Amino acid sequence: MYNVLTLNKIAAVGTSRLGEGYSYGDDVQNPDAILVRSAAMHDMEFGDNLLAIARAGAGTNNIPKDKCTEQGIVVFNTPGANANAVKELVLTGLLLSSRKVVEGIEWAKTLKGNGDAVGKMVEKGKSQFVGPEITGKTLGVIGLGAIGILVANAAVALGMKVVGFDPFMSVPNALKLNPHVKLLKSNEEVMTSCDYLTIHVPLTPDTKDLVDADMIAKMKDGVRILNYSRDGLVNTDAVLDALKSGKVAKYVTDFGNDKVLCEENVIVLPHLGASTPESEDNCAVMACDQVKEYIENGNIINSVNLPAVSLPRTAGAQRICVIHKNDGELSKAILGKAGSVAAMVTKARGDYAYTIIDANGADADGIKALDGVVRVRSL
């Protein structure tokens, strides 16, 4: 029986896929796997039997990934599972940033009680909420992953010119991108050429304050900035100063903080990007499937701390799964204790590697004793 701890509510359509042989819930002790959404895990202690943590979502800033790698715990996420939900909210923000819809709604509420005069008051007051159309304007997209691609393609369909940049864009993602999206050579080139800017990158030391005072100064006057990715990508003080000077026309963010709340020309949403039942179901299904596949077959799909490694099972063979330091001599030593090998695959990611071996007569204890081996499982 495998025990799976749920730190947040995980949609039943996902947990039901675990099937027989699994016990799951928010009171599980000594878990073999953990399913999480937004719960903070950096102060948690992990037992020796914990094999995997699956984040039902894309971002994993709430998980101590380095600590997990050192302890041989695979961390999964679910890229693309909530992409459409976020895309739809970005498009909503794009329109809200232009047409002063939020301001108009709030103003209209103040007319309550004026009876038959409301119609005339509406006609007289609507001019204060004039805003530009997005058709023909240029949208800059920083980060062309699962979400960024959907946003870029949708903007093209809405009649916008779209420019983008992503230094890590994969070939499959490039093939999904609408050919009308113009790829530029840097974040700066995108940000200085667009009327609207949307950011879809993780928060790292390299991306923190990606939009700061210096970068804003180089942008077009009246630029509108959307941040549905991570708090910290846009420097709050810088964008507020730019809003007051008129350099930035609007700032829309899904990550509120005390400084931006109730500020003029700022629209703050309460992190609603993935808050749809469809998105929660998709994330739960993907997270549970990945955990199950790793626990039962040792295959790693969508890990953020170890390489993607999959190998079809060899009939009649013992499967040995090894997380180890990325060292050529160590890899040879592991293979030397694997017995009669039927199939194997090994891949590295940074300082660590993962090896799956289907063999007969493998010395699992001998492999575990090798210096630099973090975890060994025999399936």
Rank of each mutant, 00 (worst) to 15 (best):
G19E: 08
Y22R: 08
D27N: 15
D27T: 14
Q29A: 14
Q29H: 10
I34N: 01
V36A: 05
A40L: 12
D43K: 13
E45Y: 08
F46T: 02
G47W: 13
A52E: 00
A52S: 03
A54C: 06
R55A: 08
A56F: 15
G59Y: 04
T60K: 11
I63L: 12
K67Q: 13
I73G: 02
V74G: 01
V74A: 07
V75S: 01
F76N: 01
F76S: 01
F76G: 01
G80M: 10
N82F: 15
N82Y: 10
A85E: 05
V90M: 09
L91Y: 08
L91S: 00
T92F: 13
L95E: 04
L96I: 12
L96F: 15
S98Y: 09
S98L: 12
V101Q: 02
V102T: 08
I105L: 14
E106L: 13
K109H: 13
K109W: 10
G115A: 09
G119C: 14
M121I: 12
E123F: 13
F129H: 03
P132A: 06
T135W: 10
G136D: 04
T138S: 07
T138Q: 07
L139R: 04
L139N: 09
V141K: 02
V141M: 05
V141L: 08
V141G: 03
G143N: 03
G143E: 03
L144W: 12
L144I: 08
I147L: 08
I147A: 02
G148W: 11
G148C: 10
I149A: 05
V151M: 11
A152I: 05
A152C: 08
V156R: 04
G159M: 01
G159R: 02
V162R: 01
